[in-house]
Amino acid sequence: MIEILLIILAPIIGGFIYGAERIVRARMQNRLGPPLLQPFYDMYKLMDKQAFIINSYHTILGIMHFVTLWVVVAFVIVGQNLLYIIFLHLLSSIFLILAGFSVKSIYSHIGANRELIAMIAYEPILIMLAVAFFMLNGSFEISAIRENSSALFSIPLLFLAFLLIVPIKLKKSPFDAIQAHQEIIGGVEVEFSGIFFEFLYMAKLLEYVFIYALVMLFAGDSFILALTLFLAVFFLVNLLDNSTARIRIDHLIKIVLVIGLTLATLNIIGLSYV
């Protein structure tokens, strides 16, 4: 019951995280910042806007991105197979990429291309993460991971590697080249408007839920540790966002692949010897 409620409320939870993040970011920049409910105001406003579209392929693929991402979040909450969820998440990214390519807009194309390239960086680490959980629990099922005790101390290096990809998925500095606002005006989302942009906006909120749910997986069955991890990662990501510039996509790949893969490999080799 509570799972169904969580699934339905997932975008709202994401909205609160995003709203809190905007406040935290503003405070870090010595500003007052918007109210906590700002993401919801934005959503209501977008619902009320006139609908502009380029072509129907573009719009439908954008909506499918949102729907698939919601399914992914639902699977995480229900406790499905982690490896499978990662591939389903790939499917949702693919929908977004196809949407980006389905219009003749250069910024949309560059954004989609960067999304594709960034996939090289984060996909292997996510898969390695799933494998590490498999080695610890003997199963890819998230429900099994949640029942066991915290994995954080067995896979600390993988946790660090995972931290590297959190900014990529949340589109935060220094790894936000995919959505670089000052270069390509949001990348893939540039051609969406009105209620159709809202789907992308909510997909972003769902992405927050997805990533922070993965962070909380490291805590296993301990709720307090999960909360601590969530808060720690939340502040860490925002602190990093506010103290770095956006680096280029090729630097992103190099840094994340070299550091992340090394950490993940070392950790898994360590696990197989224990």
Binding site: R25, N30, R31, S173, N242, S243, A245
Partner: peptide
């Protein structure tokens, strides 16, 4: 333009 919003604000 380099994507460093905090420095801009500062």
């Amino acid at each position: 333009n380099a994507g460093f919003e905090a420095m801009f604000m500062r």
